[in-house]
Design a protein around this nucleic acid. Sequence first.
RNA 1: GCCGAAGUGGCGGAACUGGCAGACGCGCGGGAUUCAAAAUCCCGUCCUGGCAACAGGGUGAGGGUUCGACUCCCUCCUUCGGCACCA
Length: 854
Amino acid sequence: MDAKKGLYSFGEIEGKWQRFWEESRLFKAPDCDPSKPKYYVLDMFPYPSGQGLHVGHPEGYTASDIVARYKRAKGFNVLHPFGWDAFGLPAEQHAIQTGTDPKETTQNNINNMRRQTKSLGFSYDWDREVATTDPKYYKWTQWIFLKLFNSYFDEAEQKARPIDQLPVPEGLSDAEKAKYIDDHRLACEAEVPVNWCPALGTVLANEEVVGGLSERGGHAVIRKPMRQWMLRITKYAERLLDDLTEVDWPESIKKLQTDWVGKSIGADVDFKVDGFDETIRVFTTRPDTLFGATYMVMAPEHPLVDKITSQDRREAVRTYREAAARKSDLDRTDLAKEKTGEPIGAHAINPVNGEKIPIWISDYVLISYGTGAIMAVPAHDERDFEFATKFNLPIIPVVEPADAEQAEAVRQGTLCFIGDGRAINSGDFSGLSTAEFKEQITDWLQKRDLGKKTVNYKLRDWLFSRQRYWGEPFPILHGPDGQIMAISEDELPLKLPAVTDYKPTGTGEPPLANALDWVNVTLSDGSKAKRETNTMPQWAGSCWYYLRYLDPDNDQQGWAPEKEQYWMANGGIDLYIGGAEHAVLHLLYARFWHKLLYDLGYVTTKEPFKKLINQGMILGEDGQKMSKSRGNVVNPDKVIAEYGADSMRLYEMFMGPLEAIKPWSMQGVEGVHRFLQKLWRAVVDRETGELAEAIEDAQADEPTLRLLNQTIKKVGDDIETFSFNTAISAMMIFVNHLSRLSVRPKAVVEKLVLILAPFAPHIAEELWEKLGHAGTLAYEPWPEYDRELIREKKIELAVQVNGKIKDRIVVPADADEEQIKQKALVSEKVAAAIAGRELRKVIVIKSRLVNIVI
RNA sequence: GCCGAAGUGGCGGAACUGGCAGACGCGCGGGAUUCAAAAUCCCGUCCUGGCAACAGGGUGAGGGUUCGACUCCCUCCUUCGGCACCA
């Protein structure tokens, strides 16, 4: 019975300290504390799923918690909040199937996941918890939407401004004026072909369609024009690109974002249509290849196709266009291998040489990019080359590669060369380099009003409406004559009404359309209006949650300016940790909203997330992705019950580098658990549960002091570089050393406990208490290390002969090169290896090795 | 196809700016303790040969630079992630 006292009973210890932290509000972050530097460390908040936490969640959370606890010890005022990205499809699907209010499902899921999250002992300031589904929260999501709605983008200034500052042309009727304004809003309505998913009864964002199927559920998706809300993120393309230079993110993520924005510089060139008073504008990044244009291709949807198609081609063109319109994205991808198209019987006139070239339509040209039409230069564009080869169209080489063999193949028309070279067959421009040609031809076109320099982006405007129930309602009314009206800010939040049926109507009308009492509104002047029945996508709430954490209870403002200035100082959030799956969308959307808020003066930094780290995925024990169907899912609750939260945390960090993808191992958990056990036994008496007798107020011996100081340095340095795995390994080495000592100096153990605390806070607190300290160690200063004590007195060097190790020598740490050299040369083994041959060179690398070259 | 990341023992991984490859943990083998087991402790554990001292080989493959390469350069292979006709 007594023997039990001294056991490491992690369950009790963890419960005890978690209660203490919670009840004492230990991690509450005081706003605007001028006495300390601030540190804002943020986790990507999770969707509260019915499955609860999986082992991937605590990976990032543990990493951020280690940093948070470490920074507190380093004297920072740390903001470390948590919340819930709680709108989302699963709760709505559940509602459709069972009739349960998503609000209820969501609340239950949050409660469960909060319990799980708390059981890991993270040092969140729970008083700042937010949920995007809370009307007190989405009031401000709606408020930001109104800011988008009530702003336009000033191209000259490259920034958003309030819509009432928009210069409106003179002489417009009221209706025209309203339309002009509406067309300039950053949030506007548009009739756009969207990804309609009949099975889900909703429209999906491009990102939610994978290979022509819905990301969730894998249902077929077709294209259908519908009235939708769009956010004009494209206006910010240039700034989203430029400001990437200001953030400290992994280069690979920056590159993903850069490619997603997809800037390309080229020229718009106007081609006259032969026999019509029409011109077709094309975009090209290679205006230097204009002389090599042998045909033109328009997207099937191009508005001019109908007008200029010749009588004898009309039937074929109509058939082709219908087929193209019916194609889903999946079909388009499938058919990408084989090019298709139809000539439309019209010709365009090449502005540089007056050549008549045939016009085709083909779905390899996209209506949504550039001008929806291209000049085809098969000699220097692979897609055009493929098309021309298939349909036997002429290929004229106009760029000569430097390589003679390639040049010959290009002349023969057998090789498509897309690189830079020297111009040929290009009239007066022949002989120019690609770069010179581009510049000169662009000027030439511009002077003659035939074209101009143009920049295009792959980035599309953001489709912002969903035909779903479980999302933020738009604060928008549609008037009797179709006017779009924003509801005023003081009417926010516009709450989601309770409904009885969550099913999509199937016609594309959202479920909210059935909530008639809510939809129909009588305005103050007695006229009738209808509420917008679309809701916002899940991204909306996650675009700005980091700002709400600054001031979560404020019902007058989304956040107070002075709090934003304090917590977002020095370039924003100091550390943002989350999964790489959000590399593009969430981060891009959030940056976009942040820039709008910056333009309007609500935030003071250009970018929200100064430093970003992605944690890697955790695989099942079989090395496969964890999934229920594979049966390899690891349940955190079970791990904690068996080994404790500290072991769980420690293992998550010990597995390998944070960013790496790595498989789970229960035996690995056991390994770190043994480490904690060993530490416990080294400090706590097995029988009494009191401090072990070996713990004394004694002076530590030199090797112990040296190792201790090395460990303190290593752990601190490793936390700074997020190398948590090697930090843990260093502490293991130290505990191995400590457990072999018969006298374990108390001061040494105390320092060890303090550096372990960010990783395994519960056991650290308990040991700290047993070491005789009242209260918590959470705000104890991080131990300093002594440079002098770290230094070894004697060091071992390897001695190589011609790069092969022959012997090892021990020299004083301060030995100079000559001394080391002499010592190396007297070694018998070295002498044997040299075997009397002449020394050509002796290389001495202090504190590393000696290499003798013979 | 294009872009990005990565390939190190039986396994997860370590190795600073080019300087002793395999830290730490797992697993495995042997031993101590025990009536026995669990737990714990000690020793060993990259491969090949050898009782051993030792010798040789070794960081996906091949080549190069260097006194010296897991690390830098070139070519190729494999795995994972992203994009997918963006003119």
